[in-house]
Amino acid sequence: MVSGFIIYKAIMVVVVFLIGLGIAAYSTYAERKVAAFIQDRIGPNNAGPYGLLQPIADGVKMFMKEEIIPDVSNKFLFILGPSLAMLTACMTGAVIPWSSPIVINGVSYPLQITDVNIGILYIFGVVSIGVYGIMIGGWASNNKYSLLGALRASAQMISYEIAMGLSIIALVMTTGTLSLGEIAAQQAGWHWNVLYQPLGFLIFITCAFAECNRTPFDLPECETELVGGYHTEYSSMKLGFYLFAEYVNMFISSAIIATLYFGGYNMPLVGRFVTDPNILSILGVVFMFAKVFFFIFFFMWIRWTIPRFRYDQLMHLGWRIFIPLSILNILLTGLGILVFNK
């Protein structure tokens, strides 16, 4: 029984890890295609049919490139930076519920690596370690542009984490739990949290953009001002890790948004037609990934629509608009709970 449990967990870990990496790899392809389509172009179409082998070609290119570690850099920290970025990006996938449990031979297997009862806190903790990856990388490069980029990144991420956390507090007030598994299960049918927390969702998704360093908040790596930002000095697969971590983060953010606000694996009306829990569970995976893919697309869609904020505008937005707004959201939620006794 114990060994079976370990094997099941090991399979879950490996599958989630591989799916995460695979989706991140193909996000790079999707990003280029979406960018091209929005700009009336075709995009990569030479590597394989429709350019589908492009991520593999990019990966091979990244591995084959010469690796340069600057002479003046701190070598240990220089290598630690991208490793940390990649590690934290992959760690957050552990608490996301991919679907309702599957029952095999009377034993229930939840499709979630671990349902920690403080899942949201865990994610926040891991995400805030992710800032160190960028900070350390920028610091260890011993380069002005890298340092400025890292400084901006950490300032931005710390600022937006506050608003993000406050918007989550309102969500936790309505759900009454910090466990992602329970939050997803609560949203069966039409009880999606986005309907109860529209303002909170808006704040959360904007902060998620900022946390992922995506446009319109991609100031840490804005080429026009900072060359490459914190990864100016990086080359070869270390650079690849930084870029890849961004896409893994995007995937995880989409999964978290889908879980917290859009019902996770739940889909209204499906329960009426399908009653077998195992089929429902498999359908849940499909719905979950449909939602995740939509949000990944949304991330890209936003990126190729909105120009970058100026740095002072970014800070103004974070501190003077989003934080008061999320506090207001908490008050409104409290009032709502009081009045409707939900």
Partner: peptide, 20 residues
């Protein structure tokens, strides 16, 4: 922002001008 999103999605489904 929503107006901008509509503009970009319109371009997304437009016929591309590129000749391969």
């Amino acid at each position: 922002i929503i107006g901008g999103l509509f503009i970009t999605i319109k371009h997304f489904f437009k016929k591309k001008a590129t000749i391969d």
